[in-house]
Nucleic acid binder design. Structure first.
Length: 468
DNA sequence: TGAAATGTTGGGGCG
DNA sequence: ACGCCCCAACATTTC
């Protein structure tokens, strides 16, 4: 075959790329094509920060391709129409792309495959979602058995090399990649494949690597104990297989038990990602409603003023507000903090988890349907293998436990800069004099709590009990 | 990947 | 020396 199209979607990398490798194996020339689909680009849940990361990734991918004698062909429009045009113009005999699990992607690809020679490869997860199933082929709906089955599969961890040269037809025009939306100054993600690799190596290589302490530091939003690879996994600047291989390199080699433990716990997080992908693949309805039918009728309060206070980080609970400001200002939030703010929205404010799910998608650079939905359903206690409904985080205790000195809170809430440590997660317990001394008068410098946690907890327990 | 309520135990103060 | 009470510390149950 003379020409194949490598249709890039969320595999924005050259190394360990099954679709690119397959396209090169079957054709003399390969066209790297990205189509900006208005349906996705203009969706209300596609926020500016994630769109900027995508567009910057495309620019860097184009530069990486140029070093290999190729370039990115960028188009905007309906994928099927763009592909049909390009197949005709270039005389392409095949389109190769990485399969995805979302309902929209699967509908889109099925429609394309009806008219055009589309071939799909794995890669969005280490193992395809229809492979990690029970003996009878039915999907797992509980994490632990899923992870056991996942780990028992023959490891498939030898990464594919990045191609040295990618021959590409020279006579094809590319549209200009639009300028990225203006972003807050704190967004910390450089959008390149080499940056993804640098982060993975910094996280996982060497005897002092953070991964070896991941099990003890991962829950601390005041520290840098996590890999911060999520945006790169979201858009495939790094493959899940490369990530898993880094964990296995330690599991297969390390002699220190603690280092192994850290790698094990991190691998488990990668398997959660695979689990959530599998749930979305097998149960696409989770995007619209709770997995558990009996919990689709919780009497939500859905108070718009309280929701706005949550979105804007003015609930009066410092750990919640700090985390929401981190999200809005940087496009990323620490995982422990995600659980805390999600629990607060659902179980303290009694607001429909889907409101929080949507807001996260609007702001997260790593916003990814399957893990975001899985996380929210888990917190709300309405999903597969979810947290029990009575598991309600106390935002004060969570703050004291996981941000013990208040460093995280003070980083995002300057109003609390001089609040002494014993009050940092419950400033309303300061006397008026102490508030003045700390330069933090409640209701003036920082909000009083918008709800009473103990009362909110009782209300939510009652609401869930009636629904379930 | 909880937290609150309730139950149990054991040391120390005290008469 | 002994019983009694208090209560912190820990364990168990409940939501």
């Amino acid at each position: 075959m003379r020409v194949a199209i490598w249709w890039i979607r969320r595999d924005l990398r050259l190394a360990d790329n099954p679709a690119l490798t397959a396209a090169l194996a079957m054709a003399d020339q390969v066209i790297p094509l990205f189509i900006l689909d208005p349906h996705l680009a203009q969706a209300p849940t596609t926020g500016a920060k994630r769109l900027a990361f995508l567009l910057n990734s495309l620019r860097n991918l184009d530069a990486d391709l140029a070093r290999r004698g190729s370039r990115l062909i960028f188009r905007q429009g309906d994928p099927q129409a763009v592909l049909a045009d390009l197949v005709a113009a270039a005389g392409a005999g095949a389109i190769v792309a990485q399969a995805d699990v979302s309902p929209y992607a699967r509908r889109r690809d099925a429609a394309v495959a009806e008219h055009l020679p589309l071939q799909l490869t794995p890669g969005v997860t280490v193992f395809p979602s229809d492979v990690v199933t029970k003996a009878d082929g039915s999907p797992y709906t509980v994490f632990t058995p899923f992870s056991r089955a996942w780990k028992a599969l023959p490891p498939n961890l030898t990464p594919l090399p990045a191609p040295g040269r990618i021959p590409t037809p020279v006579d094809l025009a590319s549209d200009r990649i639009p300028a990225s939306p203006a972003l807050p100054p704190d967004v910390p993600f450089e959008a390149s494949e080499s940056e993804a690799q640098r982060r993975l190596r910094a996280f996982a290589d060497g005897l002092q690597a953070p991964i070896r302490r991941y099990h003890e530091l991962r829950d601390r939003p005041d520290l840098d104990g996590t890999s911060q690879l999520s945006p790169y996994l979201r858009f495939g600047l790094i493959s899940p297989r490369q990530a898993a291989a880094a964990a296995y390199a330690i599991l297969d080699g390390a002699t220190d038990a603690a280092g192994r433990r850290g790698a094990e716990v991190w691998l488990n997080e990668l398997i959660w990602r695979e689990f959530n992908a599998s749930i979305l693949y097998h149960f696409p309805g989770v995007l619209r409603a709770a997995f558990r039918p009996e919990l689709r009728s919780i009497p939500w309060d859905n108070n718009p003023e309280l929701f706005a206070a949550w979105c804007e980080g003015r609930t009066g609970y410092p750990i919640v507000d700090a985390a929401m400001l981190q999200l809005v200002q940087t496009g990323w939030m620490h995982n422990r903090a995600r659980m805390i703010v999600a629990s607060f929205l659902v179980k303290d404010l009694l607001i429909d988890w889907r409101w929080g799910e949507r807001f996260f998608m609007q702001h997260l650079v790593d916003g990814d349907l399957a893990p975001n939905n899985g996380g929210w359903q888990w917190t709300a206690g309405v999903g597969t293998d979810a947290a029990p409904y009575f598991r309600i985080f106390n935002p004060v205790l969570q703050g004291e436990k996981f941000d013990p000195h208040g460093d995280f809170v003070r980083r995002w809430l300057p109003a609390l800069a001089h609040v002494p440590a014993p009050f940092i997660h419950k400033p309303w317990t300061m006397t008026p004099l102490e508030q003045r001394q700390a330069g933090c008068v409640l209701g003036q410098d920082y909000p009083a709590p918008i709800v009473d946690h103990a009362a909110a907890r009782e209300r939510t327990l009652a609401a869930y009990q009636r629904a379930g």
